[in-house]
Design a binder for these strands. Structure first.
Lengths: 238, 238
DNA sequence: AATAAAACGAGAGCACTGCTCTTGACTCGA
DNA sequence: TCGAGTCAAGAGCAGTGCTCTCGTTTTATT
């Protein structure tokens, strides 16, 4: 038995049991993701267990409850979406191109994973309180947008835009205080216009995925999204 | 027995049974609405029946399935929301005021009925296909917006706005064809800008209700919404 | 006014769910 | 080698949507 340790000491360092546990954990998540696409948010833990050939109570060794499984999936999805956005930005040159690439990167991921997008951007379960673990991955996309805008602003690539209508003073102070912690060099006016673009980006995708364009825009949805992103680009001064 | 008919002939015209059926139907919906606020979309038919003091199978005399109950609730909510928007517009004078009143009317209803708003504007159930009965009530809000814009346009109250970026030709033709059926006098450019405002309106409300502003905008959410609506008003040429 | 037909509420029952607890086998670390 | 911890399996509980049956009541017809 000791000889076993000698043959492959660093491989068993995390122990066999820990390794198989990690494998099974991600296998459960993979099966759950697959079932999510057909069943939606009302995911059945027992069905996941059944597909994996184990009994339902065994799954509870890996996820203490169904909500915890969903939370794990949510975190994974946030990270995938954030990575998709980051990669898209990195692969483009120039402010406008990077912004458009970001938007289409987010949209492409959403179209490829509609159930997952609905899970993270759809209706929250009334009782469900988003755990602290989710806020980091969830903020990756917004961080990309803000970074893009601040970089463009500091590089002088953003045209000064119309400041009308003015921000109400209470709103301005609250936004000033919120952005000071992260990007103190960002003007509040730019933040406000960036938030318009942010809402528009996810608003269009959500409407498209949730069927609000049905019987209205059918063929040219990508064109519509692209156009809206260009409108928003102008709005922020690109 | 016949004397009964003679005493109140027109009262029993819709028959006793039909009347009590109608009452029970709306009573079931009322209880379901109340449970919706605490339980969310996973509404329990049995719990509704329990609260009404009847057995679960009796509810099936009134709604053939749980989905049909939810559909009935969805239709009611669409109508309430549409009516809230229409009333708000009627109670205001002038194009900008009417637009702002509409926005706040929608938002106020959403804040007062978050679960109901999530039901109609949240993630659709993957299998759930929206019945034809819902599209009419669902389109009341968009009709208000388009009417407002067309009236303002025909009255010459809308400034001509920048047509950049231009619409891609395939998108323009599809939008032209779609709007021709309802408002042929509406320019496509105005429709596009109106859709931007439409998406922004519901996008901000959805983000606010679904917690996207948490730890960022807390006190001035109404101000933020109002500001966004004014930005959109400028965008469409008000 | 009597009778057939339809609608109704109650109850039992089925297959399913999330979750808990116990039992016996297995693996780990000392 | 041997306790301690981990694991899969199974039984079980309370809850779910939904179906079916069975008497009762109301409606519509003759």
């Amino acid at each position: 038995m000791l000889s076993f340790y000698c043959y492959a000491p660093e491989m068993t360092a995390p122990s066999i049991r820990a390794r198989v546990r990690e494998e099974l954990t991600s296998e459960i998540k993979a099966v759950a993701r697959r079932q999510l696409t057909t069943e939606g948010a009302n995911l059945s833990l027992r069905a996941v267990a059944r597909e994996l050939g184990m009994v339902s109570s065994a799954v509870y060794r890996y996820f203490p409850s169904r909500d915890d499984l969903l939370t794990a999936l949510i975190i994974d999805c946030y990270n995938e979406l954030g990575e998709a956005g980051e990669k898209a930005v990195e692969g483009a040159e120039g402010l406008l191109s990077r912004w458009l690439a970001f938007g289409h990167g987010i949209r492409d991921w959403a179209l490829a994973h509609p159930a997952e997008y609905a899970l993270i951007y759809g209706s929250p379960v009334p009782g469900y309180k988003a755990p602290q673990d989710t806020v980091g991955p969830a903020s990756r996309t917004t961080t990309v947008i803000v970074k893009l805008l601040v970089e463009g602003y500091l590089a002088g690539e953003l045209k000064g835009t119309d400041e009308r209508p003015p921000l109400p003073p209470p709103l301005e102070t609250e936004m000033r205080r919120a952005i000071n912690e992260i990007f103190p060099e960002m003007p509040v006016g730019l933040l406000a216009r960036g938030m318009t673009a942010w809402v528009q980006l996810f608003g269009v995708i959500t409407f498209e995925l949730f069927g609000r364009f049905n019987n209205f825009i059918e063929e040219s949805r990508r064109d519509f999204f692209d156009h809206q992103m260009r409108v928003m680009a102008r709005h922020v001064g690109m």
